[in-house]
């Protein structure tokens, strides 16, 4: 066999191996993503067979400046601003505290990771019950909110955020635990020998050393939070008085695919949400990563 024919055989073999994966990626990820940019230019009737009407970029500008979109954008950003910092902070504090030679740490670790495996429907149901006005629990704690949390225009979105924080806390904890385990022990010990207080050590040593993990957790958490809509769908829905307070952009996309089918508008919102989230991630890279301290550099 010549060298050339070996190479051709190898290429054919390689393409056969990547074909299934590449086909699925093309059909279900790349094609639908790129097609958004075409759909966004048309008014598409909800029933197939009817002609689509060309609207051009006009549809995009109208959509992203509409009150509905701006309201959802505000809800999404507020939700993200509540979930990410608190979720990252809770995970960080718990991971640093659990990273000690103390009895029972293994049990705490398992407990904290529980929320990372809970589905959004389960988490929403659990908190929906705790916040249920019929439940005797909150009044017993002296918490009486009227109207009740989920029907309250002030409290509905923070309630959604509590669910988000609870869910994100587990992953955040796991990320920081892994980050701590990869740190060189000598640095932590040196700080200890220096006699630095625990609080001082936390801010002066642990946080700078963990900054790559903090950055990663913030980036991952932000993307997940920007696309949240599950608990809103389970607990609030379109008919509620607080719908407009919790109507995130991802929920808006879902609405425009099912409830009021309008593929063109849905595509515009998808592009905008993707663009805004990418911009935030880019800015985080730009301004946060500069402050990240990589061990060994």
């Amino acid at each position: 066999m010549t060298r050339r024919s070996v190479r051709i055989r190898q290429s054919v073999g390689a393409y056969a191996l990547i074909a299934p994966a590449l086909t699925l990626i093309s059909v279900f990820i790349i094609y639908p993503f790129l097609r958004n940019f075409k759909l966004a230019l048309y008014a598409i009737p909800p029933f197939p067979g009817l002609p689509s009407k060309w609207l051009g970029i006009h549809q995009f500008t109208t959509t992203v400046t509409s009150d509905v979109f701006l309201n959802s954008l505000q809800a999404t950003l507020l939700y993200t601003a509540m979930v990410v910092p608190l979720g990252v902070f809770a995970g960080l504090v718990l991971a640093v505290t659990a990273h000690q030679k103390l009895r029972g740490m293994a049990i705490y670790r398992v407990i904290f990771s529980t929320t990372a495996v809970s589905s959004v429907a389960v988490a929403a149901t659990i908190f929906g019950t705790l916040l249920n006005p019929v439940n005797g629990l909150l009044p017993w704690f002296g918490i009486n909110v009227n109207p009740p949390f989920l029907q309250n225009t002030t409290w509905a979105l923070p309630a959604m955020a509590i669910i988000g924080i609870w869910e994100f806390m587990g992953l955040s904890f796991l990320l920081f635990s892994a980050g701590l385990q990869s740190l060189p022990e000598e640095v932590m010990e040196a700080a200890l020998v220096d006699g630095a207080s625990p609080v001082r050590r936390f801010f002066r040593v642990t946080i700078p050393m963990l900054s790559p993990t903090i950055f990663y957790a913030v980036a991952v958490g932000t993307i997940a939070a920007m696309y949240t809509f599950g608990q809103m769908d389970v607990l609030i829905g379109t008919g509620s008085t607080t719908y407009t307070n919790t109507d995130t952009l991802a929920y808006l996309i879902y609405q425009s695919v099912t409830v009021q089918p309008n593929a063109g508008v849905a595509a515009c919102i998808s592009i905008a949400l993707f663009g805004i989230t990418s911009l935030i991630t880019f800015l985080q890279f730009r301004f946060l990563e500069r402050r990240v301290h990589y061990v060994g550099e």
Binding site: F28, I30, Y31, P32, F33, R35, A263
Partner: peptide, 16 residues
Amino acid sequence: TLLIPFEVTIITNFQT
């Protein structure tokens, strides 16, 4: 494709 969240592909996937 790691950067593309599933949420922004549902319109076409639903039709597919």
